[in-house]
Design a protein around this nucleic acid. Structure first.
Lengths: 229, 229
DNA sequence: AATGCAATCACCCCAAGGTGCATATCTGAA
DNA sequence: TTCAGATATGCACCTTGGGGTGATTGCATT
């Protein structure tokens, strides 16, 4: 499913010697959407000079086409750098599409936005709203920050996904008992509440620990805690 | 230290019959800072009509004078509603003073701000930036949201303070052993690592549970977890 | 029908946790 | 000095957790 070559024509990828060449990006991927061809190119050059992978688009549609629904393979930290004023679909609209996709922070740009647009951008959850002319230092600082956020959220999600998998690998009984154990109930109490023999509780408890990969009860407590959000 | 009458002259307080009159505010306190007397009064009326307590100031200095350093007694949810353009000290500068005071969210207002100011306001951590003319519905919605945030953060902090107190009420040994227990170590292992008899570990462990108010190990794990941020 | 898995339970054993009782040292506060 | 609290330890007893062996039942897939 996932592309072996993530950026076939847009990103030459510096191809540093000490890292495998097919890694998506060394310092992260920046998706830039900007309808001015020249400015777009300039941004791309700047970002690539800094060691970022950069995917350039002239429109939001072009971007959505490459990353269709929300099946963005989480291949390393990435962020959106996007002009607010775009043909057909604005940056704000784009943000709505990815509202749930917190792993791809949005940085908005604009040269002639009104105060309302700026406020709207922030309310919509943009990490920042850069006003043209944009200072290169500031831009890079924000991008770096956005990628850091992205990496952090991806890591978080991946952990949760792994945890979720482990939990779904448990049987219903095991889940019930694991929850009660994490709540501090004694085996005896659990057995009474569930009308089950003590030995059975112990068995499920044991398997729950195994399947969750928890070496002891405190670890199980932490996992269940995290799972419960 | 804390004032028995929180709003002596500024807030008449609706004095509803079903609640003690000396409560700070039923729905929360909104501190408004606005240099236009008329607008300030209008805001105050609006907010009080909605059941909020309202403290009105014509300048940031006036506000800081009433709430000197950061000794804001956390008497219920409160937020700042503040014009960006103020004599002497702007809303943004004010925000810097209270950057650590997350329990008092800031809503900025302005009628003639530029895009840069709006962006700066958001970057500074303002919850929102309302542009005049301000719609009453929108304002009340934001205030409600801000107070909810404030209440949540205060509750969180109070819990942490209580927890901190309990932890500081423990002896050094008790803390060390509680931490190790929460990490999943066995009494025997703890005893070995600390060059202590097993019996001693059990004692400290017991007292730790007592002083933390934890009924069982999972509860202790959660408390230690929270304490560790 | 056969196989596999989840769930259930009994009996037994050992390890670990929880407590009461008794004792002892050390340090800082009254 | 005396007293309180922290720290430390030993002994004994009971509870609880962990795990092995073996067996049964029900459901679903093969």
């Amino acid at each position: 499913m996932s592309k072996a070559k993530p950026n076939p024509n847009l990103t030459p990828t510096p191809a540093q010697a000490d890292l495998p060449a097919d890694l998506p990006a060394h310092k992260g991927l920046v998706v830039v959407i900007e309808d001015h061809q020249e400015y777009l190119s300039a941004l791309k050059r700047l970002l690539e000079l800094e060691g970022y992978a950069c995917e350039a688009h002239l429109s939001a549609e072009s971007f959505l086409q490459l990353h269709p629904p929300e099946e963005l393979a989480p291949l390393g930290p990435c962020c959106l750098l996007c002009d607010v004023k775009l043909p057909a679909m604005s940056g704000l609209q784009l943000q709505e599409r990815f509202a749930d996709l917190k792993e791809m922070p949005l940085i908005l740009m604009s040269g002639n936005s009104g105060v309302h647009e700026v406020a709207e951008g922030f309310r919509a959850g943009a990490l920042d709203f850069l006003l043209k002319p944009i200072d290169a230092e500031v831009l890079l600082q924000r991008v770096s920050q956005a990628l850091e956020l992205s990496a952090q959220r991806q890591q978080e999600r991946q952990f949760r996904e792994g945890l979720r998998e482990r939990i779904e690998g448990m049987s219903a009984r095991e889940r019930q008992i694991a929850r009660r154990v994490a709540e501090g109930m004694l085996n005896r109490e659990i057995a009474a509440e569930m009308h089950i023999a003590l030995r059975t509780v112990k068995l499920h408890r044991h398997r729950a620990l195994l399947k969750l990969g928890a070496k002891n009860v405190p670890e199980l407590v932490r996992l269940i805690q995290i799972e419960a959000l």
